[in-house]
């Protein structure tokens, strides 16, 4: 270098090495993610216990709920104005109030909640009325082969085949983690489809309509699987599927 004080720097290509190093780190991160994630979750769990600010909630965290909504704002409903309509290809369409639903036999299902965006909430209890119970009460006609769900956010829709809808781990849920479901989590009433990714569990449920075929729901029209079964490692704790 001393011989040529002028001219462009011609030393080591440090920037290129930094870039390649970053790519290697990314690849290593992908390979080690399952292990790193496990350790990270433990660190977060202990950190959040000592954290009164709630800032740990912002860190990349595969466990814990995140709030998703597809519209700008969602109206709030409670026991005074909530209504769940069941109609379509049924003999006895009717509307349930929140009190009606609470009066029906309740079923409790405890599974891992798993979102397609990578977060997971282990062993989450949901409690509510089996969807099959409501369908039986309404009397599904022979041509009814699927169920379409609508929501009082005015936009979200979901679907299940009749066979999926009649599983014992598919609930019209009223409680989550043993408390009434809050507005942020889709309350007062949401769907809970335990064996599938969480986008199948429509929030703010307001309508159940029996149809003759599956009508793809909101995310499904945007590329998600219509059958949102949990796959591979995501399926842990799901002995029924």
């Amino acid at each position: 270098m001393a011989d040529q004080p002028k001219g462009r720097p011609d030393g080591a290509p440090v920037a290129r090495r930094t870039m390649l190093g970053m790519l290697a780190a990314g690849a290593a991160g992908l390979a080690g993610a399952p292990y790193l994630q496990h350790g990270w979750e433990k660190v977060l769990a202990s950190a959040s216990q000592a954290d009164s600010t709630g800032l740990t909630g912002l860190l990349p965290n595969p466990s814990g709920f995140r709030y998703y909504s597809i519209v700008g704002s969602v109206p709030r409903k409670d026991a005074t104005d909530y209504e769940l309509r069941i109609d379509g290809l049924v003999d006895r369409p009717r509307a349930y109030t929140l009190a009606d639903l609470r009066a029906l036999p309740q079923t409790r299902v405890v599974r891992d909640v798993q979102c397609t965006d990578g977060w997971r909430v282990p062993d989450t209890p949901f409690e509510g009325v089996r969807l099959s119970h409501l369908l039986d009460a309404a009397g599904v006609r022979p041509e009814g082969r699927a169920v379409r769900f609508t929501c009082f956010d005015g936009a979200y829709t979901e679907s299940l085949t009749m066979e999926q809808a009649c599983r014992s781990d598919v609930l019209v849920a009223l409680n989550m983690q043993d408390r009434p479901i809050t507005h942020e989590h889709g309350g007062p009433v949401r769907l809970y489809v335990a064996p599938m990714y969480f986008y199948k569990s429509a929030k703010w449920l307001s309508g159940i309509s029996v149809t003759d075929r599956v009508v793809p729901g909101y995310w499904e029209e945007r590329g998600y699987d219509v059958d949102g079964w949990l796959e591979g490692a995501d399926r842990r704790g799901d002995a029924g599927a």
Binding site: G26, G29, L30, A33, P34, L36, Q37, W40, L59, P60, P62, T116, D117, G118, G232, A233, D234
Partner: peptide
Amino acid sequence: ISRTSAIFVHDCLAW
């Protein structure tokens, strides 16, 4: 590559 791993790297690197 599992989707969960991709998301984990994406989230950490985003910060």
